[in-house]
């Protein structure tokens, strides 16, 4: 990795200015678990690396306005150690914690997972289902955007030159809400998701689903928020019929490719299976969370 330049600014605006000045080959570094691999393999040309970890807002988890703010460079391991976050958003935390090994968890961030723009990113379906937003800093200042709007294709983002994600915001959580994320991998650890499914739902006092969001990973060029799948749950108690409708809606939304990790046919079937199973877990969590 020759011809790499490195800076570690302490203010978001400095980072944005540096990224803009660094041109097309400038990259923000949060966890680095994708970036360093891509640089080493030659998939990314060397350029300026802007480390975000010395920017105070980019590190740590804060409770604000009833929701959570997660700094862009916060490693997965920190998410699993945060008790309140785990109680409110167990699906988001388990999705982030599925990325790579314990070692990778010591570094990898959800913002990095998001901006790497892999269709198979584990944390993204959970974040999309959670209706998370992110704060983007750029040369023109700050803006907020839904998490689902960041990736626009494999490896491509909607971020303008000089822009980077500084924070991820999880909204306030109503009572009787639950979320869950499941993925299918050939081994038990260390693999890229063949399919991922995140479900986030809220119940009323009778256990009827009032709100539901279902997002699928690795079945399309970007993570899919499947409105029909969410709709299949609303007004039900996630019973067999609702789950069957959810399964069908999830499969209908799939537009995957066949590659070394899975076939179109398999990915489509598994999307339905995992959406159903994740919904059952999320429902169970929502029931327990008064």
């Amino acid at each position: 990795m020759s011809h790499v330049e490195f800076i570690a600014p302490t203010k978001p605006e400095q980072a944005a200015a540096a990224l803009l000045a660094g041109g097309a080959h400038a990259r923000p570094l949060s966890g680095g678990t994708d970036l360093l691999v891509q640089l080493r393999s030659g998939r990314l040309p060397p350029g300026l690396i802007v480390d975000l970890k010395r920017i105070p807002e980019a590190i740590g988890i804060r409770q604000e306005g009833g929701g959570f703010v997660i700094g862009a460079a916060t490693p997965g391991a920190a998410l699993s150690e945060h008790r309140a976050l785990g109680l409110a958003w167990p699906g988001v935390v388990e999705a982030a914690n599925l990325i790579g090994s314990t070692q990778v968890q010591g570094r990898a961030s959800m913002a990095g997972n998001l901006c790497n723009a892999s269709p198979a990113a584990d944390s993204v379906p959970a974040l999309v289902a959670a209706r998370a937003t992110c704060v983007i800093v750029g040369p023109g200042g700050r803006r907020t955007a839904p998490v689902g709007s960041i990736a626009i294709g494999p490896g491509r983002t909607s971020l303008a030159p000089g822009e980077f994600v500084l924070e991820i915001h999880l909204p306030p959580r109503p009572a009787r809400s639950g979320d869950a994320y499941l993925r299918l991998i050939p081994r038990t650890e260390m693999d890229i998701a063949v399919v991922g499914a995140g479900v986030n739902l809220t119940l009323d006092g009778d256990g009827v689903v009032t709100e539901a969001h279902v997002a699928l990973g690795a079945v399309a060029p970007t993570v899919l928020l499947v409105a029909d799948a969410g709709a299949a749950l609303i007004g039900t108690k996630a019973d067999e019929a609702a789950l069957a409708a959810l399964d069908a809606a999830a499969r209908a939304a799939c537009n995957p490719i066949s590659d070394k990790r899975g076939t179109i046919e398999y990915r489509t079937k598994i999307a339905g299976v995992l959406a159903r199973r994740a919904a059952t877990i999320a429902y169970g969590r929502a029931e327990k969370r008064a």
Binding site: L29, G32, L36, V37, D51, A77, S101, Q103, G106, R107
Partner: peptide, 9 residues
Amino acid sequence: RLVCSCLVL
């Protein structure tokens, strides 16, 4: 924190 030193600059 446990990390892979090959993934740290």
